[in-house]
Computed example of a mutant assay.
Amino acid sequence: MRFLSLESMARPSLLAVALLCAPAWAERGDRNRPLAFAADSARVDEVRQLNVLSGNVEITKGSILIRADRVEIRQTPEGYQSAVATGAPNKRAYFRQKRQGSDEYLEGEAERLEYDSRSDTVRLVNQAVMRRFRGSTLADEVAGNTITFDNTTEVFQVLGGASSAAPAGRVRGVLTPRDAPASEPGAPGGGIGQ
């Protein structure tokens, strides 16, 4: 697996633009960082405005890290971008990013991760888990079938269902007050399985 910079691709504009739109809660400096990716294959379709990275995909851009089996990136004629990252069988897609102005990180896992720049939302679909870390300590964790995060309002919604990451298809979570010490997963009150 070899990392390529976007500058080494012949026509990288669509891929670069799609991942430049870092969420509002994200580290602002990520927007200006170079994007690098590694995959077993890459396909660029300029006519359909579609880029497909397949096989052991890893994308980095500043503090952003995405790992998936496949990532499809599209652009509408109006200039809006969307990206869908899917995991391999029995392995979820993963993302991690630093939050602006703090030592906090958000990370998420799901069978499918979706980003839509028009609505500025991120959706984690099937076996969805989202975590917030303060440094290396787990502070918050939610799990369900689908987690939707609206970057404009900084509001998230968790829905249960048959493909929930929480037991019995329910929604589960642990939310730590901002001024309270975060707990370790598995500690009393910590972790989704509690």
Results as ranks from 00 to 15, higher is better:
175 L>D: 09
170 R>E: 09
152 T>Q: 14
42 A>Q: 13
108 G>R: 05
143 A>F: 07
103 D>H: 07
33 R>M: 13
71 V>C: 03
48 R>L: 11
71 V>P: 08
194 Q>G: 05
44 V>F: 10
114 E>S: 11
100 Q>V: 02
182 A>W: 04
50 L>N: 08
154 E>H: 11
58 E>S: 06
49 Q>M: 09
127 Q>T: 07
107 E>Q: 12
162 A>C: 05
119 S>Y: 00
153 T>R: 03
4 L>R: 13
94 Y>F: 15
45 D>E: 14
101 G>P: 09
30 D>Q: 01
33 R>Q: 15
180 A>T: 12
128 A>S: 12
178 R>K: 14
173 G>R: 01
26 A>V: 11
154 E>G: 13
180 A>G: 08
180 A>Q: 15
21 C>Q: 15
38 A>N: 07
87 G>H: 07
81 Q>S: 15
35 L>C: 07
123 R>Y: 01
48 R>C: 06
67 R>M: 03
9 M>S: 12
19 L>F: 05
14 L>G: 08
124 L>F: 11
125 V>L: 12
22 A>E: 09
48 R>I: 02
10 A>F: 06
40 D>F: 11
189 G>T: 01
169 G>D: 14
189 G>Q: 03
86 T>E: 13
23 P>L: 13
192 I>A: 12
182 A>S: 14
2 R>S: 15
111 E>M: 10
16 A>S: 10
68 A>L: 03
156 F>D: 04
98 K>F: 04
87 G>Q: 05
147 I>K: 06
13 S>N: 04
7 E>K: 13
145 N>D: 15
151 N>W: 03
46 E>K: 01
135 G>L: 14
184 E>T: 06
7 E>I: 10
89 P>D: 00
161 G>T: 08
106 L>W: 10
67 R>D: 00
5 S>F: 09
149 F>T: 02
8 S>L: 12
172 R>E: 15
149 F>D: 00
167 P>V: 10
172 R>K: 07
76 T>R: 11
180 A>Y: 14
7 E>G: 13
130 M>S: 11
141 E>D: 08
142 V>R: 10
108 G>Q: 00
46 E>Y: 02
98 K>S: 11
44 V>W: 01
98 K>Q: 14
41 S>L: 05
89 P>Q: 03
113 L>H: 02
35 L>P: 04
46 E>C: 07
80 Y>N: 14
45 D>V: 06
137 T>C: 12
74 R>L: 11
149 F>C: 01
168 A>C: 06
167 P>D: 11
32 N>P: 02
